[in-house]
């Protein structure tokens, strides 16, 4: 990795293509970004990526854009951030600009709606795969707190539909308190 033209181009084309193929935004695009930048290009390590997502989620704006900004900034500074934003924003910008001119016909087109139905199933598979990978990573460490946080957060978000901002806030505080307590009691966990 270096801040040369090749990195710039790769950053732009990667975010552009991922953004062009993700329907539904937010947590749909994040697993794809992780796959590309953590597993394929290896520009960012897995833990750092999870931190990026947490930062992106607790900032205003769209999670997809914020995550891209962080990846771009880490990879190639301010220029990288600008390239990643452009790459993420341009596909929906172009598509929506065209559609807004004739949106009524688009909405009721049978071929388009069949394609969208198929794509939803594909997206669900991609997310399931990503969640399995990340969840197994957390479970493998065999520590009580992370597993408890994962379970409770899931119930809070899915079953009780609690605002994501509160979930992030509480989990962050729980993590800070536990590290503080651990330090005080002098116990070194591995």
């Amino acid at each position: 990795m270096g801040t040369d033209k090749k990195t710039f181009l790769k950053l732009f084309t990667s975010t552009f293509f991922i953004s062009a193929f993700t329907f539904g935004g937010g947590f749909v695009i994040v697993p794809l970004l992780k796959r590309k930048f953590v597993e394929d290009l290896k520009w960012i390590d897995e833990k750092e990526m999870m931190d990026f997502i947490a930062i992106a989620q607790s900032s205003p704006g769209a999670v997809a854009i914020n995550t891209s900004i962080l990846i771009g900034y880490k990879t190639a500074g301010a220029i990288g951030a600008a390239l990643a934003i452009s790459g993420t924003v341009l596909p929906p910008f172009i598509v929506i600009s065209v559609i807004s001119l004739f949106y009524l016909g688009f909405r009721d087109n049978a071929v388009i709606s069949a394609m969208l139905k198929g794509m939803q199933a594909g997206i669900a598979a991609v997310i399931a795969d990503a969640v399995y990978g990340m969840g197994a990573g957390v479970a493998k460490e065999r520590k009580v707190l992370p597993i408890a946080i994962m379970t409770v957060s899931f119930l809070a978000a899915y079953v009780f539909k609690i605002n994501v901002v509160y979930i992030i806030l509480v989990c962050g505080i729980a993590g800070a308190v536990s590290s503080f307590y651990r330090k005080k009691s002098g116990v070194r966990h591995k």
């Binding site: 833990k47 999870m50 931190d51 997502i53 947490a54 989620q57 969640v131 990340m134 969840g135 957390v138 707190l145 992370p146 597993i147 946080i149 994962m150 379970t151 409770v152 957060s153 899931f154 809070a156 978000a157 979930i167 992030i168 989990c171 962050g172 505080i173 729980a174 993590g175 800070a176 536990s178």
Partner: peptide, 8 residues
């Protein structure tokens, strides 16, 4: 604390 929450 945040990492497992993100997975969830």
């Amino acid at each position: 604390g945040l990492r497992p929450a993100v997975v969830a």
